[in-house]
Simulated assay, not measured.
Amino acid sequence: MDLADDLITDPYGVYDRLRTVSPVHQVTGTDGRPAWIVTRYADVRAGLADPRLSLDKANALPGNYQGLQLPPALDANLLNMDPPDHTRIRRLVGRAFTSRRVEQMRGPIRALADKLLDALGQTGTVDLISAYAAPLPVTVICELLGVPQERRGDFRGWVQALIAPDPDRPTAAREAVVAMMHFFTNLVADKRQRPEDDLLSSLIAVHDGQDGRLNEDELMSLVFLILNAGFANTVQLIGNAIWTLLRHPDQLAALRADPSRIAGAVDELVRLEGPALLAIRRFPTEEVTIGGVTVPAGQTVLLSLSAANRDPDRFSDPDRLDLERDATGHLALGHGIHYCLGAPLARVETEIALAALLDRFSRLALDGEEAVAWRPSMRSRGLTRLGVAYHSGAEG
């Protein structure tokens, strides 16, 4: 069935109907090619950990949906790899991308959030995506990778072209990829000559070290993946969380009353409105049976994270936001060996972004009927605009 448009305009309604009828359906993707979509929690969770469901495009049959196509120098990343290469690279990257590094960033992230909110003043209206949810993680990822201050404007422009393509400039995303490749090629060369205390220098040390086994394409692909996962997903996570709370004033008031609950609230917010509707596509290396449906080897399997997270067999009253709910076990950030490497950083950024926003403004509300615009995507769930009216004075 051709559900591409419906999956963009009403993803949760479509997933609910599909899940009710059958756990697995063959659909047509946005590129007109077929794929099997999986919607029930138990099947999605099992599929995320099933080694027979390969991420390597070499296992895909021609004519099936394959998702985003990147130049070879950017395609050798963890989202296209199976063990043993995936295991090797994730282990090497893990040496540089540590929980200690993330924890050390809490103070600077809060200072950045406060600086962005200072610029808004005490009262007014603003698009919180462009003024807050986007500049916060892009600055964090620039700091993490060691992008020079004077190049961050270019960097933000390229990333914006990737996450919110301009319909009047159909080649903008491709041009941004080319520009970023040139930029990172030069930045890697500079970091080799003058290494600093940043993630890119650490990755280069792994690449250049005697025990490192990252080739040049793997290094460039990792940088590109860290950029997109560390920025685009976090913008969506922060923006979706704010939007969800604004639509549930009782839950927002509860967080204001007890800010210590924000860390736990992130699990429920990401369960309900996570940044990824679908996990990265997979290709069975042999015939597999999922939810009683046989999928031939080489065809495309799309595991719906958002459908799984709203499965009533796993979460009671799943379409309702309940910050008292134990939402652990949600699949919004993956499961198994492909669990999001940057999840700890994304969580920290979201916690701090929410805490700083609620600390600063006693009143927040959506700014009119045209306040919200969503990125048109079958795979991701993210706002391109979030218009908000705010006020920092006392209630009353």
Rank of each mutant, 00 (worst) to 15 (best):
L323W: 06
A279T: 04
T285D: 10
L341G: 01
G342R: 04
R281H: 04
A307L: 10
E286H: 06
V295D: 05
L252A: 06
G368Q: 13
T328N: 05
L303A: 12
V372H: 12
R347D: 01
F361E: 11
V295T: 09
A373C: 11
A263P: 01
D313Q: 14
T350C: 00
P318G: 05
A263T: 14
L366M: 14
P284G: 11
L345R: 04
A365F: 04
R320K: 10
L278C: 03
D267S: 15
L366Q: 13
R325L: 06
C340F: 01
G291H: 12
E324G: 13
P275D: 00
A276T: 02
T350F: 00
Q299W: 07
A365Y: 04
R314D: 00
R347H: 06
V372N: 11
D322P: 02
G298V: 05
A265N: 05
Q251M: 08
A332M: 01
R271S: 09
E349C: 01
L269H: 08
A307K: 12
T300F: 07
R320Y: 00
A371P: 00
L302C: 14
L302I: 10
A355M: 03
Y339G: 05
I290V: 15
L345W: 02
E273N: 15
E349I: 02
Q251K: 09
E273A: 15
R256I: 05
E370K: 14
A365R: 15
F315E: 00
N309D: 15
D326A: 12
L255R: 07
L345D: 00
L341C: 05
S306H: 10
E351C: 01
P318T: 03
A373L: 14
A327L: 04
P259W: 07
A332I: 00
Q299Y: 05
L341M: 04
T328A: 09
I337Q: 11
L303C: 11
A327M: 04
R261I: 12
L341P: 01
G334A: 09
R256L: 10
G334E: 03
T300V: 10
V293H: 09
L357C: 11
D317N: 11
V270H: 10
S260L: 13
G291P: 01
D313G: 09
V348E: 08
S306C: 09
A279E: 07
G336Y: 10
E349S: 05
L277P: 00
P259N: 06
A373D: 14
N309G: 03
R360M: 14
L252R: 08
H338W: 05
S362G: 15
L345E: 02
S304Q: 12
